[in-house]
């Protein structure tokens, strides 16, 4: 991790906000920069300068642009698939239906069961696909930043899950009944409730949604930093370092390649885990006893 501390200010890449964070493109930027440019990944990557409405609460920056583009992409794919949906599916429709079936059967069906889960299938589907799409933007060239890497989207998704499982629990048991079922789980010795109840309250109030949001965000941030590190080190080694060090560029490029594949896996896995945990939390609210 020694390259981390050598972050030299490199104003060039910031001129065109769309392309700054694209790791492969820093190759060009650094090459024509001062020559000492090693673009170290940092947290500022996630707070690019505004494009529109700077300073207002509608500030629109690169991350928002990525989100909008990915939204359009996601909706375009699914609207086209839905419009062309036929009784006998083609290859494209089969793939789309496989994704929808995966959510319906392997996530919701497995956790909640067919009957109880039917009501929540659309919600989990939307959550799964949103997370998946925005995660994948982390490895798409020229975007190279996951839409979920900025905490806002994970927080909103987690809030949605939070509201859903509270509403589900209250509708099923009533407000008092829901709290009682969660805070005072049966089969626990009475004195222990002093410890258990606050923990459980913290659990259903803060920890569940916060862990959902932070898990997703942290995974994406870490993935982005790893990718940027690998690719910017590659460009540094290949174009600016001493000839003897150029071989390292190949190594770091291989690392970056491997991490790109790994990020794809993580993107899908995080979407799966987010959907699964959302189903689990909703299901816990609906259970007869905790």
């Amino acid at each position: 991790m020694c390259p981390l501390k050598s972050g030299t200010p490199d104003p060039d890449p910031w001129e065109s906000p769309l392309f700054t964070l694209a790791a492969p493109l820093t190759v060009v930027a650094s090459a024509e920069g001062e020559g000492g440019g090693f673009h170290a990944p940092s947290i500022t990557d996630f707070f690019p300068p505004a494009i529109f409405f700077e300073g207002t609460i509608f500030e629109f920056n690169r991350v928002m642009l990525i989100r909008v583009i990915m939204t359009i992409l996601l909706l375009a794919i699914f609207v086209i698939a839905a419009r062309r949906a036929k009784l006998v599916p083609g290859r494209f429709q089969n793939a789309i239906e496989m994704i929808l079936d995966f959510v319906r059967i392997n996530i919701v069906g497995e956790i909640m069961g067919e009957e109880r889960g039917r009501r929540y299938v659309p919600m989990i589907t939307v959550i799964f696909l949103t997370v998946l799409t925005f995660n994948i933007s982390g490895v798409i060239p020229f975007m190279n930043l996951a839409g979920t890497a900025l905490i806002g989207l994970p927080v909103m998704l987690a809030l949605w899950v939070f509201v859903t499982y509270w509403v589900a629990g209250i509708r099923k048991h009533g407000f008092g009944g829901y709290l009682k079922a969660n805070l005072f789980p049966p089969g626990v010795p009475k004195p222990i409730y002093v410890i258990v109840a606050p923990i459980e309250l913290l659990q259903i109030l803060i920890i569940r949604p916060a862990s959902l949001a932070i898990r997703l965000m942290a995974n994406m941030v870490a993935g982005h930093i790893m990718l940027v590190l690998c690719f910017s080190a590659t460009s540094y080694f290949l174009f600016e370092a001493a000839p003897a060090l150029k071989a390292f560029g190949v190594l770091t490029f291989a690392g970056g390649f491997a991490f790109t594949l790994f990020e794809l896996l993580v993107a899908a896995l995080q979407a799966y885990i987010f959907g699964l945990l959302a189903s689990v939390y909703i299901n816990l609210s609906l259970d007869e006893e905790h």
């Binding site: 898990r215 885990i273 689990v280």
Partner: peptide, 22 residues
């Protein structure tokens, strides 16, 4: 299926500690 679901529940608890670390 049941084991996997329970595992992820447990994973969520354990991972929470790492997230708290962050």
């Amino acid at each position: 299926g049941q084991l996997r679901a329970t595992m992820f529940l447990g994973v969520a608890f354990v991972e929470l500690l790492a997230l708290l670390g962050i």
